[in-house]
Design a protein around this nucleic acid. Structure first.
Lengths: 357, 357
DNA sequence: ATTATGTATGAGACCGGTCTCTTTTCGATT
DNA sequence: AATCGAAAAGAGACCGGTCTCATACATAAT
């Protein structure tokens, strides 16, 4: 009833204009900060706006300008420290550039990813950063890019898809630690990942959908082959999706007769489970089992022994993806760029020379 | 030039209507899924939409409906595992209820929080979930709530502000572990938190802006007082904002002559630094120093010794906040609710009876 | 004094949907 | 065949901004 009840029905430029005794167009010029206005009128409008507690409607603004000031981010799982750190990098840069971030988890599921992208496009995000679940299945990404919305890929690229991409030098890192393990005398080296195949058995790297992991496995296998260790395919363990599943796989793997003497964990969540399991079944690290994990998670430094890891520049991964995207948003129209960030092996104490054979 | 170039200028209902040979209103009915349409027309419109690759503009839809299908989330730092897990809970419920999430980090800074909320209101989010940096400074939240947008507070409430709130029973948890330490003979018990005061010294719980931490410190002090330990205020350490600062504080604290025999860490990031520092300066846990940390972070189970923690239902905290909000969004108009979730002490091996005194 | 130049303001279309109100169509009823 | 009522379709206003274009007025140039 009371028109002053401020509640309901937000205040619009028209309301402010009426109160200030000017036209809607003029009030809009002041409020929107464009065009030319006299100081007198500017003050009048500003006062009126304050009095009415005017709040601009960004939605309406986006309608005409065509820019929403929003970027959409699709990651596998924000709960994973890898992604939460990368997202931090993205949001920092985005905020700096005046954008807000809409975040959607895909759960590493392609159909969820498709739905997420549809939603984001419907909401008219200005650009997209995606960590694609399957690098072979990118038609929806291609399409989003075709719609004129800049796109940047995070941590996982696609060879067949030319678009701004930021990844770590996973192949190189995997090759390095593999070589190191071989030089220390290891021959039975396992690689364990969350990725999975329909039949749960690894045949070739092409079975692996996640780009970063595929590159690592390639590095692992190639290095083994060069060192005269063929057919290491059977040492690639898949399906470590949840901690529970990982524990089961680890148990079967480590209790077997022909158990590996070294394990490479594809991320820190898996690394943690391997560590727990080896302790559980009484396998001493590093005397009886060497362990190297990807991702320098905080806990890896405080275990006994502390674990050797491949440190990825996760925050920078996110930051860089956001920077590339913002450049596009600012009109950069050059060819797609692939940025590869360097990793670093942090030597701790979970790796040892193999004594007997 | 080529009108078929699909690129630029997105396809609108009007375009679809023209192609299908019906009015804009009718096409909108089909595309928007409302009103009544004949099967024949529905098919025609659907076919036309597909042919033109029509993508609804959610922005335009939001304009008229007044609902954006978005909820705004403001947390201290998504990089902190506590928040990333809570956010996961929020996004899961939000997605289920058909909402997307706009995420903004406040960095525990009130002015950033204010800016974030202004942005979110401008973007016309349907509701807000905020983890307020200062529970004393909530005028901006109150205002956001007054604008008719439902609001739920996460992990931190405000006594003076009646609004849906989800917290853990921090006071109870702190009292419990304090009592336990006292019973084990500890008298010099330190509490260390990231919260800070201008003069970096703790005087009274009212100095603490973060609701959850204030309640814990109150529980700590009250229990000490009841047990005949007065003036424990000097054992509250503040300003452990970054790992570096925490390390410095921990060093000074643990190397002092009159060092504490037990430490309560207010979160897992701090707990990790205490653990590292005590190892660095050669203080054996638990023989020479007992440690209890809030937040059951993954690493706490794998250290030697594993550390005793207060397990908070973090995911549920986020989930519940989102549920309360969604209920409001669906029209629930009852009095504000305060939900307190129970914590649980996970006994591990970082706490021991104090031998000599 | 008259015309040119530029600045300040107003009027109204527009963005892409939704929604109300009116008109047309069609099947059922008597 | 005439009448009625509901279903289907159309016309056009509306949401809250931006933006183009026209107009009014002031100042400067001739």
């Amino acid at each position: 009833m009371d028109p002053n009840s401020s509640q309901r029905a937000s205040v619009t430029v028209a309301d402010v204009a009426r109160k200030a005794g000017v036209s809607k167009a003029t009030a809009a010029r002041v409020l929107g900060g464009y065009g030319t206005v006299s100081d007198r009128v500017r003050d009048a409008v500003t006062v009126a706006a304050r009095a009415l507690d005017y709040r601009p409607n960004e939605l309406a603004r986006s309608m005409t300008t065509g820019r929403s000031g929003t970027i959409g981010v699709v990651v596998g799982d924000i709960e994973n420290p890898f992604f939460s750190l990368a997202v931090r990098g993205i949001t920092d840069i985005a905020r700096q550039a005046g954008f807000t971030v809409i975040l959607i988890n895909s759960g590493e599921d392609v159909s969820a990813e498709k739905a997420a992208i549809r939603t984001l496009v419907a909401k008219r995000v200005d650009g997209l950063i995606v960590s694609p679940a399957k690098e072979s299945d990118v038609e929806h990404l291609r399409e989003a890019a075709r719609s004129g919305r800049p796109l940047a890929l995070l941590d996982r690229g696609s060879e067949a898809f030319e678009v701004d991409t930021v990844i770590a030098d996973d192949r190189h890192a995997a090759a390095g630690i593999t070589r190191q393990l071989i030089e220390l005398g290891h021959r039975r080296i396992a690689y364990i990942t969350a990725c999975d195949t329909p039949d749960r058995v690894f045949h070739t790297p092409n079975d692996i959908n996640t780009g970063s992991v595929r590159r690592r496995v390639e590095g692992f296998l190639d290095t083994c082959r060069e060192a005269g260790l063929p057919a290491m395919e059977r040492w690639v363990y898949m399906g470590a999706v949840t901690p529970e599943q990982t524990r089961q796989i680890a148990k079967r793997m480590l209790e077997g007769k022909n158990r590996p003497t070294a394990v490479i964990a594809s991320d820190s969540v898996i690394g943690l489970e391997i560590f727990k399991t080896s302790r559980l079944i009484g396998l001493a690290i590093p005397q009886e089992l060497s362990l190297i994990s990807f991702h320098d998670a905080d806990w890896t430094a405080v275990t006994s022994p502390p674990v050797t890891v491949v440190r990825q520049p996760v925050y920078q991964l996110g930051e860089t993806a956001a920077k590339l995207l913002v450049e596009r948003l600012n009109g950069n129209d050059t060819a797609p760029r692939k940025v590869v960030l360097r990793t670093e092996v942090v030597e701790r104490a979970s790796v040892a020379r193999l004594l007997e054979d």
